[in-house]
Design a protein around this nucleic acid. Structure first.
Lengths: 341, 341
DNA sequence: GCACTGCGTCGAAGCGCTTCAACGCGGCGT
DNA sequence: ACGCCGCGTTGAAGCGCTTCGACGCAGTGC
């Protein structure tokens, strides 16, 4: 209180309680047994003086900063709310493990990762928006820093990853529509740039959808989808020019959902009577769209949570590289049914 | 390289270069003049050994962690993309000042702030989503930690704040529509919870709009707006039951934009021939909506940037509490024009 | 030729905490 | 009764860096 910075130190607590600094430290950490009388005396001193451990000193001495870095490249073509939801889940889970989250946005690219690793700012790092051949991977493989990817790169060996099983997801959507009797499908995909960048999940989903469609003898037209409302609507409207018998849509592109529904409405095609739509995306988008959409949920929270848990496990018990794929689950809502006729 | 942790220390650089540790430190910081011969020798040793300063040690010794905390309460009723845009601007600007961003999400509430302050994790803190009578304010006033609010609380004395001038914004929107000749307006506001929480910006905007409308003798009906697509559409549709002569809309609620346009379309009201719409929100939402909307931009990037700059200024030159209100500017697009008749 | 100044460098003292080795002590077994 | 063990506690040595005061050595003014 009297100090300039207002900072009570551990040494002051020790003096106040009449014990040594190390004893106070052990009371705090519980790493050594302390008699209950001493413990109580120390705890009361801590309360009286209003002591709070200094994170910087602790980090230096213990070589644990209790900080988790989260690398979140912020492409404008990635759907922000999902990124956010993952980030929040990461932050929340990290807190429950006594860690805080350092936010690294994309601007710096791999340099940010290098910096964090070299300066030992963080205890571990979680990477989002992983590309098939991500530039950050070599750095990770060279380094000791525990890392968890949210997303699956091309070759995930010696890496720890968490992701939705997008291949199963693509197949599942096609299955659902095919089972209902649809024979001609359209896959409304992410923005062109997402594919050009070889973002794993987007490619894996379409490819799996395509190969399942082939297996089932069902047609599937893939259309990436970008631009504003009008642009999207335009792209989608044209699908029927090309394949007039299309009756089923798989949509993996949140901003395209409403434009699609609006185009269908305008063309006088009823959902699900004339056309069925299956979305891949966050539950709330699907459930709150202008038509309640049958969808495969993107388990953003779970992915964030698992990523942190794997990172913490690596910190506690050493690295154990593994790839965790979350099984997709499809919820039937009001947008899918048998095709007309 | 041979070390377990792979960490080259400053001491090793000093040894390699044949100078003292302090000399290396001064080469790095530039806080003392160093002969160019020595500097070069040290710099080459740094390169050869691959030295990177340890952030933890640096933070402890210099009492600067180069970390900026960003408190971002993540209410689901706040529009995520704007929050994100601010966060990204904060992160980017912070980086350009040599700082990283620690992300504090809302879950912990004021406790997170207390924790960060007490542990001196961060050098400064930036708070988003400020309420009129925010619980975090007393903490800020008591503490030495530089803080910048993005948003304006009820009594901003002894605090540093950045915000769009929402009062001017509300007035500006009403002015625009009134000048075009509209006499009966509707204000489509944020979710009910936002007002209940007394989030400053929402209240200030409507109040200013109302009082300007009163001054001009124009009618203005305020409707908070929540729920899903259908719920919003429903709320909006009912505005015309109550005030059939409404011809102008001010919309301060991003998720309500498309439902509004869709309702108007369904009711056969053309924009801007029958009804004008002015939005308050991010530029891209306005420009990319299904009708290009006349709007007052929410300068998210600028707010984030300014907040960091003010925080850095406080770090460098001590606190200088001030409230910076950014003047609104209205861009006319395709959604506003004179009323019919 | 002398005190003075400023530049470049160094040594040492921290920053506030953790942790390791060590030590005294009372209770145990035999 | 003796040594042994484990518990509770301590002192000291760091963690890797910054920074202050000091010091030697030119160069300056007179």
């Amino acid at each position: 209180m009297s100090d300039t910075t207002g900072a009570v130190t551990l040494a002051e607590v020790a003096r106040h309680a009449g014990v040594s600094a190390s004893t106070v430290s052990y009371v705090l950490s519980g790493k050594r047994s302390i008699s209950s009388s001493t413990r109580e005396r120390v705890e009361s001193s801590i309360r009286v003086l209003g002591y709070h451990p200094n994170a910087r000193a602790r980090a230096l001495a213990s070589s644990r900063s209790q900080i988790l870095a989260l690398m979140m490249p912020l492409r404008t073509d990635m759907y922000m709310p999902v990124m956010m939801e993952i980030a929040v889940a990461v932050a929340t889970t990290a807190r429950s493990h006594g860690h805080d989250v350092l936010l690294l946005t994309g601007e710096e690219g791999p340099a940010a990762l290098r910096r964090v690793m070299a300066s030992s700012l963080a205890d571990a790092v979680i990477l989002m928006d992983v590309e098939t051949d991500d530039e950050r991977l070599p750095l990770l493989r060279e380094s000791e820093l525990p890392a968890v990817l949210i997303g699956l790169p091309g070759s995930p060996d010696r890496l720890t990853c968490v992701d939705l099983d997008f291949e199963a997801t693509g197949a599942l959507c096609v299955d659902h529509l095919a089972e209902l009797g649809h024979r001609e499908l359209a896959f409304v995909g992410e923005a062109t740039a997402v594919y050009e960048r070889h973002t794993g999940f987007a490619e894996r989903t379409v490819r799996a959808a395509q190969s399942r469609a082939r297996e089932l003898g069902v047609g599937l037209l893939h259309r990436p989808c970008d631009g504003d409302y009008a642009g999207i609507a335009d792209t989608l409207g044209r699908i029927f020019d090309e394949r007039p018998r299309t009756t089923g849509f798989v949509v993996q592109n949140e901003p395209a959902v409403e434009p699609l529904l609006s185009v269908l409405r305008r063309q006088g095609r009823a959902v699900p009577e004339d056309v069925s739509v299956v979305a891949i995306g966050p539950e709330d988008i699907a459930a709150r769209a202008s038509v309640r959409l049958t969808s495969v949920a993107l388990p953003a929270r779970e992915m964030g949570r698992r990523a942190v848990e794997l990172a913490m496990a690596a910190l506690d018990r050493g690295p154990a590289h593994r790839q965790e794929l979350i099984a997709p689950s499809l919820t039937v809502r009001a947008s899918s049914g048998p095709p007309p006729g």
